[in-house]
Simulated assay, not measured.
Amino acid sequence: MKQSNTIIKTHYKREDNIAAYLMLSPWIFGFVLMWLLPMIISIYYSFTDFNLLNEPTFIGLKNYIRAFTEDKTFYKALGVTFTYVLILVPLRLAFALFIAMLLNKKHKGLGIYRTLYYVPSIIGGSIAVSVVWKQMFGNQGVIMSLLNALGMEQKVSLLGNTNTALGVIILMGVWQFGSSMLIFLSALKQIPYSLYESAMVDGAKPWKVFSKITLPMLTPTIFFNLILQIINGFRVFTESYVITDGGPLDSTLSYVLYLYRRAFTFFDMGYSCALAWILVAIIGIFTLFLFKTQNSWVHYEAGRE
């Protein structure tokens, strides 16, 4: 009897597994076809001399050596991207947390405000919004007209000035704070209100409540948002490509835009694949560093072993 029950359970388990794999098959097919195979192919091309017209020729580590020893534009693009990430990520997270704390209070029409604040994250990375942003900060744009009306005449537009062009790109990135804001808002609602009640009884000031209760309780969410935003920051492309095309004088030349140029302007596909994997390594190093340091600043409610 026990043996027959075991056979029946095994049969149903096998059928459940088959059904699960059938349900997962579209995702598995897409992952293998759109992600895994291109990754494997790009790794191979990164060790070759390949220009899309001729057969790839294996050259070993020469593409990687070329990037670090011969290519000055590589360091320029890397510097621009590092500057973008180091300024953008703290500003975006700080602004997202500030708005989340405002929206965490009870107000009329709160759902509408949350939607409006999230809209920039949905459309912010689109070509259309980048074109609008370019027009706003161009020579005849709204921002330039406003500055002139206030008596701050500008001979060169903010996008044409090497000192301000990257700042415009960063400003657009900060404007796309909606996704981080929603994550912070969800985390704020999970903080026990009893903690705030105890602080009020003790007469704690608002800044003390924020630094001793809110911020420590939010550190796991900050950690999660920080990793996501660093990854997204290193992958910036659309804004740099559409608004300034890397100019003026490569002051907004992002790493991914440079990678794109090497691949589709100079047809240096092997070298561009090497650049792509260098970027993967850089992001991996940053992510690993954050995971290694989280024990010193991230506070989990249940603790960590």
Rank of each mutant, 00 (worst) to 15 (best):
M269E: 02
N104G: 12
F31R: 09
T244I: 05
H11A: 15
G233S: 04
K2H: 13
F29E: 10
H299S: 14
T244V: 10
I183A: 14
K134G: 02
I122P: 01
A274C: 04
P120L: 02
L61C: 06
D71P: 06
L37H: 11
R66L: 15
L249P: 12
L86Y: 10
W297I: 09
P120M: 02
L52D: 13
L103S: 07
E153L: 08
L171W: 14
Q154M: 15
V168G: 03
I122D: 07
A199S: 12
F289N: 11
K205C: 11
R66P: 09
L158K: 01
P248H: 04
A281C: 03
A263L: 04
L91I: 11
Q176C: 09
G109Q: 02
M172Y: 07
G109N: 02
I99P: 00
I65W: 12
K9Q: 14
S121R: 00
L158M: 03
I65L: 15
D49L: 06
L226H: 03
I169T: 04
W35H: 14
I99M: 01
I43T: 07
Y45F: 12
L290E: 00
T81Y: 02
V156C: 04
M136G: 11
I282D: 08
L290N: 03
L185W: 02
L159P: 00
I40F: 05
K106V: 03
Y64K: 05
F224R: 07
L171T: 14
I40Q: 05
N51E: 05
L86K: 10
A276D: 03
G167Q: 01
N17M: 14
M217F: 09
N163P: 10
S180N: 02
Y75G: 04
K292E: 14
G178W: 00
